[in-house]
Design a binder for these strands. Structure first.
Lengths: 142, 142
DNA sequence: ATCCCCTGTTACCCGGAAGTAACCGAAGGA
DNA sequence: TCCTTCGGTTACTTCCGGGTAACAGGGGAT
């Protein structure tokens, strides 16, 4: 049995049974897909997207609302979101300066997905915490 | 103006306008929430969940299908998923050994969310790639 | 003259995620 | 006797996300 041929057959079955995840593996640019995925899953992005909600907010509002975020990480996160076209950044030439951030249409579409993720987590976190305890208890060596 | 009072007022407005993301910040265990989020967003989990789909698969099938994953990372990812109760691990006492993995009900519920994320990414990845190019071109120094 | 405000930037450090390579064990086959 | 298969484990190293602290800058208030 040729392993390569076997792998091809599996890829084929995968493509038939799971169109969207197959695309995920094979389509356009897996590196881009992965970068978007890890961006979504990073420490602050979903929080910022969520807090931004449907109102524009300024930098220091975000820093106050999001518990524990440093100015640096807020800047980094906002820059990345702006680069991806998920938020807009508006600077007001005042003293002291004022900068406001707002979700774009694209950003709002991501927000729906983010909400789905957030809902799933809050619905299932207790179950998962229990599963973890049980797993750790029943097999402490592994 | 008391900054603390201001922050409280913002938290309050947040709680009214965005119930689910407010829960996300304030509810049960933010560390658990974050650990789940980063697990979902890690390099391999969604891929494994997606490939597992609705069929059980054995270790070497997964290793063949998922492009680029090492045995170690596959093991690590599968263990974490098993610990959370998202997949089951079935060992057949044969020689050579056979081990099959399958999504649990909880795992399938996560799969729906994963699909939503995957769909969003594949729908919008080209737009985002263009946004990134434009951003990098128009402001190369930042 | 000095401090504060707001929105960052820069330099530096740390821990954990991820990658590489070698090894394991039991049974069957040459 | 040695090699192969499968499903891992172990040890070591590399990479990068994220954290801390200090500084910038320009006008207003004390």
């Amino acid at each position: 049995m040729q392993p390569q041929h076997q792998a091809d057959a599996l890829q084929e079955r995968l493509a038939q049974s799971m169109p969207s995840m197959a695309e995920l593996c094979t389509s356009t640019d897996p590196a881009l897909f992965r970068s978007l995925l890890s961006r979504i899953g990073d420490k602050w992005t979903l929080l910022v997207i969520g807090v931004l909600g449907d109102e524009r907010r300024r930098f220091s509002e975000l820093a106050d609302i999001i518990p524990g975020i440093s100015r640096r990480m807020l800047t980094v996160t906002l820059r990345a979101l702006e680069r991806d076209g998920l938020i807009t950044r508006t600077i007001y030439a005042e003293v002291p300066p004022r900068v406001e951030y707002e979700l774009t249409t694209l950003g709002r579409s991501l927000q729906h997905v983010a909400m789905a993720v957030g809902d799933w987590v809050s619905e299932n976190q207790n179950t998962i915490a229990r599963n973890r305890e049980h797993f750790d208890d029943s097999d402490p060596s592994l």
